[in-house]
């Protein structure tokens, strides 16, 4: 009986229409374009910051106001935190590819935690900066750039959470898996943008 059943199944499969072509990676490409576009907002402000800083230094003046204190430690810790999150995001994608929901959930949890830690670090950096938001053009630019990046991270966390929960919740279809890849791509871009922010504001000040 068992042999007959197997044969019947094979017959059914042999009569089935061919598999549809691979689904185009619409969400992945759309996310790449949106992420690139969002990055340009921050890059534009970094360009403005760098240009104004260059002009001030060229005049022989000091860029950062006296009371300003851009600390190296919180900014660098934030950078390390985000670099670690790259690993955990890659872990999510890999775990979902292997249909390993346990590891995927763990990786999601760690990523969300690292994202929250980054936001906490950024808030601490603002607290330590010693400048009011509108106290000087320098402060305005720093708060706008870092604030926009925190917003970018927040959107990335939301994106990862929505796509991740959909995937872990059982919708491990091609489209859902693509959603997680798209969220991961957005996250990678976010970390890349922070590397520029970190170098411009934390390192060169």
């Amino acid at each position: 009986m068992a042999t007959t059943a197997v044969t019947t199944d094979l017959e059914v499969f042999s009569e089935a229409p061919p598999a549809p072509p691979a689904r185009p990676r619409v969400l992945l490409i759309g996310t790449a374009l949106a992420a690139g576009s969002a990055s340009m907002v921050i890059f534009a402000l970094i360009g403005l910051y760098a240009k104004m800083r260059h002009d001030v230094l060229a005049d022989g003046e000091v860029w950062m106001p006296e009371e300003g204190n851009v600390q190296l430690t919180p900014g660098s810790m934030a950078m390390v935190t985000l670099l670690l999150s790259l690993l955990t995001v890659a872990w999510i994608v890999q775990a979902l590819r292997n249909d390993d929901r346990g590891h995927a959930l763990m990786a999601f949890g760690v990523t969300l935690l690292l994202g929250a830690a980054y936001i906490n670090g950024a808030a601490y950096g603002w607290q330590q900066l010693g400048l009011g938001v509108t106290s000087s053009p320098q402060a305005l630019l720093i708060y706008t750039i870092t604030g926009l990046h925190v917003a970018m991270v927040g959107i990335g966390l939301l994106f990862l959470a929505v796509m991740g929960f959909r995937a872990v919740g059982g919708q491990l279809t091609g489209r859902a898996a693509e959603g997680v890849s798209a969220a991961a791509l957005y996250w990678f871009v976010t970390v890349g943008v922070y590397a520029t922010v970190w170098y411009t504001i934390t390192i060169t000040k």
Binding site: L33, G36, M40, V41, A44, P137, L140, L141, L148
Partner: peptide, 22 residues
């Protein structure tokens, strides 16, 4: 997509500067 966000970013800081800054 590489150009419009640049204008949006510069306008954002202009908005903040105009409303709250120096």
């Amino acid at each position: 997509l590489l150009t419009l966000p640049v204008l949006a970013g510069v306008l954002l800081v202009t908005y903040l500067d105009l409303r709250y800054g120096e």
